[in-house]
Write a protein that binds this DNA or RNA. Sequence first.
DNA 1: TTGACAGATATGTCTAGACATATAATCGTG
DNA 2: CACGATTATATGTCTAGACATATCTGTCAA
Lengths: 247, 247
Amino acid sequence: MSLTADRGKVEAADRPTLYKQIRHDIETSILTGEWPPGHRIPFEHQLMARYGCSRMTVSKALSELAQADLIERRRRAGSFVRRPQHLSAVLKISDMRAEITALGRSYGYQLFRCVRRAATSADCARLGVRKTGKVVAIACRHSADNVPFAIEDRLIDLDSVPEATTADFAVEPPGSWLLHHVPWTEAEHTISAVVADERTAAALGVAIGAPCLVIDRYTWRSARTLTAVRLHYPGDTHRLVARFKGG
Amino acid sequence: MSLTADRGKVEAADRPTLYKQIRHDIETSILTGEWPPGHRIPFEHQLMARYGCSRMTVSKALSELAQADLIERRRRAGSFVRRPQHLSAVLKISDMRAEITALGRSYGYQLFRCVRRAATSADCARLGVRKTGKVVAIACRHSADNVPFAIEDRLIDLDSVPEATTADFAVEPPGSWLLHHVPWTEAEHTISAVVADERTAAALGVAIGAPCLVIDRYTWRSARTLTAVRLHYPGDTHRLVARFKGG
DNA sequence: TTGACAGATATGTCTAGACATATAATCGTG
DNA sequence: CACGATTATATGTCTAGACATATCTGTCAA
């Protein structure tokens, strides 16, 4: 954060736009530790002078940094580098096909079971709904280069997702189908570890007692549960990677 | 998304600001599924007319939605609801004390080992650095209500974090110390499952062969690795919860 | 000492324009 | 019909102001 203005207005072609430059400069100063948490960022009018631009431009840069939780803005006081409270990592879970093909491996899919039926009380409990409607229960396996990659055990609420009544899950995996047919949802993931029981071990091709990573995911939209899924991964080979960012 | 303008300019006191209102209205239309992925959002000039405001105000609302990856803006074409490509969940990992006390349980900490020494080649490999410097190797255990909660095995690069040379990790857990003394970092988490070996089982108070959730975290700042930590949790009792959001 | 009140000040929101730029759509030509 | 050039259009960035609002600071009186 030591460069002065020199915008040049004429040959401002290749450089990113000015507000992005400002944003980037400040971000760099924070991320390198030059400006520690609590440090006050230069006032808007100082940045205006330094970059030779209007207040709106500076403000746009600062607003984006605030939206990204990198800084905190306080009226009359100024803007400050935020103190990271926790390590928050963004865990990106693509659908299985994308995840496997991204690794450069061939994707395989096998449907074990797909039953459409009236919801049992166990189903209702799992979906967190009260009234009994119709559901689809699906069990399937994903493989990478013909080696079992994960097994999936899923329940879809047909009252919330009526289109799933006619979908053919023998052809398209339910996760992928849902991702492409059901718009914008919220989800909660629970990650735990178990050892493989007999059924799981057989389906995953591992020994009984081998470690498995388990992900339970509930997906809903506006307070309606759409689907509940449990995924088992062989724990010694699979890794969930979550990158970025202190905050 | 059906209200018309009626800003009233005079009594615009209690309502949130206009751009937030616009942002919220659009967000709601997307999240309820009313506007599915691919749907084109009204043009800026239409929103200007609907809300009776200037283009900058509309633009600010749309820019924030774009920054949050909820919409995609394309010149000449308009703005569109984004298709969720993956389920991305934000995994918040507080330091251990905060995590345990947040559960309403009493926090306990026990230091097993804390050695400051020149880095071995194994240390360098783990930290991903080439040259050999000094490191701290720490092994400790966190407990909740006197029951083992997690064991921690950590390496800190003293060249990158010289303040750690004098820190007393018998008093303060290293994770908590780092969070409060080392500003703004980036991190990569790898989550996997293993079965407890003899040493781990003894430290965690579980049976040999019991499932364990393992989190490996590398933390760095501007390409310098600061610390590498491996955490073992008893897999059948501990759960990592990641909430939110489709995208 | 304390509390109420009046500035001072930095950010928060907003306007009515401007020009730049990417690209969808159209038109013309071979 | 295919393809390249042109045009129209929606967004991208930016300005030079404006008034609102939260909050820190200092002053003056009870």
